[in-house]
C-alpha cells in the first residue's frame, strides 16, 4: 500500500482516449507470451478465482459464529423474534451447508464453492451480455 503511483507506462504516443483501446498498457518484456486475449496472462484471473474459492471453501470455516450486527441489534432492541424463516429454509443449501454431507466442514466448504461458481456464472454472464461491443471495442478480440 505504498503511495507511489507505479502505473505501467503505455507506449509513448498512444492516445489517452478510450480505456478500451486494445493497445497494451504493459511494456514489452512479456514478449514470449502468446498473442491474443491471453497476451497478458491468465495468471491474475486464475489467482482471483482461486482466492474466492479458497475463502468460500476453506476460510469460511473459521468465520465468527457470533450473531451479525443486525441480528445483535435486533436482539438488543427486542425484535429479533419477529424474524421469520425464509420460504426456502428447506433448500438443500440453506444456511451454507449441503444437506446430506456429514462433515460440517466439508458441507460448508462445498456450499461456499457452489455459491462462488453460481455467482460467477450469473454475474459474469450478465456482464458479458451487457458489455460494449463494436465501435469502441478492442480490435481483433474475436
Amino acid at each position: 500500500m505504498s503511495g507511489s503511483a507505479q502505473v505501467p507506462a503505455p507506449p509513448a504516443g498512444s492516445e489517452p482516449v478510450s480505456p478500451v483501446s486494445g493497445s497494451a498498457h504493459v511494456p514489452a518484456p512479456h514478449g514470449s507470451k502468446p498473442a491474443g486475449p491471453a497476451r497478458r496472462g491468465r495468471g491474475p484471473w486464475v489467482a482471483g478465482l482461486a482466492v474466492a474459492l479458497l475463502v468460500a471453501g476453506v476460510v469460511s470455516w473459521y468465520a465468527s459464529a457470533s450473531p451479525d450486527g443486525l441480528e445483535w441489534a435486533a436482539e438488543q432492541a427486542g425484535f429479533l423474534d419477529t424474524a421469520e424463516d425464509s420460504a426456502v429454509a428447506a433448500s438443500p443449501l440453506a444456511d451454507y451447508g449441503v444437506s446430506g454431507v456429514g462433515s460440517e466442514r466439508l458441507s460448508g466448504g462445498l456450499a461456499g464453492v457452489v455459491g462462488v461458481l453460481v455467482t460467477l456464472l450469473l454475474a459474469g454472464g450478465l456482464a458479458l451480455l451487457l458489455r460494449r461491443r463494436g465501435r469502441d471495442a478492442a480490435p481483433a478480440e474475436d
Binding site: 480505456p19 478500451v20 484471473w45 482471483g48 478465482l49 482466492v51 474466492a52 474459492l53 475463502v55 468460500a56 469460511s60 461456499g112 455459491g115 462462488v116 461458481l117 455467482t119 460467477l120 456464472l121 450469473l122 454475474a123 459474469g124 454472464g125 450478465l126 456482464a127 458479458l128 451487457l130 458489455r131 460494449r132 461491443r133 469502441d136 471495442a137 478492442a138 478480440e141
Partner: peptide, 18 residues
C-alpha cells in the same frame, strides 16, 4: 462494461459472495 472489464465483474461478484 467492455471486453476486458466484463470478466472482472463476474469475478468481483463471486469474490464478494465468498
Amino acid at each position: 462494461l467492455d471486453e476486458r472489464t466484463a470478466p472482472l465483474a463476474g469475478l468481483t461478484a463471486a469474490f464478494v459472495f465468498a
